[in-house]
Amino acid sequence: MMTALIGLSLLQLLTGCGSSRTVYVQVPVVPLPANLTAETQQPAIPEPLTYGASLDLNVSLLSALGQCNIDKASIRKVEALRASQY
């Protein structure tokens, strides 16, 4: 009998918390900066392609690839920041 009375009083306490209300607020989406989504310039292939010119082309291509990787890393940071805010 005593257990039933304690159970009923606890049940009344739990029903008192049931009136809370959740309100969701719309958050505007912030666009990515234009410099992260801009096209990376493709180096021109010299004509005629000599050995020395191919070495210069390799340097230009690696530089463009490095810039793309920097942009991707920046996009990942922005997305991680957005995910942590929600």
Results as ranks from 00 to 15, higher is better:
V23W: 12
L57P: 01
S60M: 15
S20H: 10
V78W: 11
V30T: 14
T50S: 09
A80F: 13
L57D: 02
G66V: 05
I45M: 09
D71V: 07
V25A: 15
L81V: 00
C17R: 08
D71Q: 15
N58M: 15
N58W: 15
L36T: 03
G66T: 14
S54R: 06
S54M: 05
G18M: 14
A34Q: 09
A34K: 05
R21G: 01
A73T: 07
Q41N: 12
S19H: 09
E39H: 03
V27E: 12
V59M: 06
L61V: 07
C68S: 13
S20A: 13
L57A: 07
P28G: 09
A34D: 06
I75H: 04
A34S: 11
V59R: 11
V59E: 06
V30A: 13
Q67G: 05
L14Y: 08
L32S: 04
Q42K: 11
P48R: 09
S20R: 15
G18R: 04
P33D: 01
T37D: 01
L55N: 04
T37K: 00
A44R: 11
L57H: 08
R21K: 12
N58I: 11
L55M: 11
L55S: 11
I45K: 07
R82L: 05
P31G: 07
D71H: 14
G66A: 08
P48D: 04
G18Q: 09
A80P: 07
N35M: 06
P28Y: 00
V30Y: 06
K72R: 13
